[in-house]
Nucleic acid binder design. Sequence first.
DNA 1: ACAGTGACTACAT
DNA 2: AATGTAGCCACTG
Length: 107
Amino acid sequence: MPDFYSKVYELVALIPSGRVTTYGAIAKALGSASSSRLVGIAMNHAHELRPDLPVHRVVNRNGLLTGKHHFTDRFTMEQLLSWERIMVVDDQIVDISSVRWDPLLDL
DNA sequence: ACAGTGACTACAT
DNA sequence: AATGTAGCCACTG
């Protein structure tokens, strides 16, 4: 597994239940602030590489569920989030600022 | 070695 | 406010 991926996965594993973080925040926390797209790609592969990870807790900077189409039909991203008391309306996290978790600040 | 790619972002209309 | 555009960079074939 590529080194960058494993670093991403380490951080994702630390996201507390009921909170979310963004691709950009993870990239920045890894010291590679402009690699947010790679974080997304890492999430895409996480299904096979690390199926245990809470990848549904990673959204884009606006709280939009951009990765929802990559989830299995049995457990949608929205479902997984709502099970953690996170409100989702129109593929958007409601009041993203209150549940956002920044690995740099909140770790 | 090289060019194409993308679960992103910031900036400009 | 809502789109469009252009950088971004590690991974992959």
